[in-house]
């Protein structure tokens, strides 16, 4: 009886160790916000802008994204173009990124800053950007380089 119970105890322990070693490390599960955040072109633009500056007003971001999407300089963005982007940022993309911890959004000032997952998302964006969305990558990079020089 005693022998038997010892043996089964060993089995249980052995099995649970094996099962545990098959689980992915917790860090890997944290990658979901990255996929969610980068699953839409406007959200990728939003993330890119964080590489450039740590704080943005929603209005400025909308202008910038409208300029990018229409491939025109920011001063040429029409109010209607800017409004359309603003609305989709306000009602869909910004709250999504806030939910994923990538951004923080102050509803009173409408200022956007980086959230706790921003660094992880930006690293992933930089890693995949060139191959998945080379036009956007070149575009964002080009503009950043212009401002740096």
């Amino acid at each position: 009886m005693a022998e038997k119970s010892e043996a089964s105890e060993e089995d249980t322990t052995g099995a649970s160790v094996a099962a545990q070693s098959q689980l992915p490390p917790p860090d890997i599960l944290e990658i979901e916000p990255v996929y969610e955040a980068l699953g839409h072109s406007r959200r990728r633009y939003l993330c890119y802008t964080l590489l450039e500056s740590t704080e943005w007003s929603l209005t400025d971001l909308a202008t910038k994204i409208a300029a990018w999407e229409n491939d025109i300089p920011e001063h040429a963005v029409e109010t209607t173009q800017q409004k359309r982007v603003y609305v989709s940022l306000y009602h869909a993309h910004v709250p999504k990124l806030v939910d994923e911890g990538v951004l923080t959004f102050d509803e009173t000032t409408e200022k956007i800053t980086a959230g706790k997952h921003a660094e992880q998302v930006l690293a992933a964006l930089e890693a995949i950007g060139a191959s998945l969305d080379s036009h956007q990558e070149t575009h964002a990079r080009g503009e950043m380089n212009e401002q740096e020089s």
Binding site: K83, Y86, V87, Y90, H91, A92, P95
Partner: peptide
């Protein structure tokens, strides 16, 4: 009103439009 005056609640909090 103007579309940018539609604020609260964000649609995101009501339904996942995308």
């Amino acid at each position: 009103v103007s579309p940018i005056e539609v604020k609260s609640p964000p649609l995101y909090e009501v339904v996942d439009v995308p």
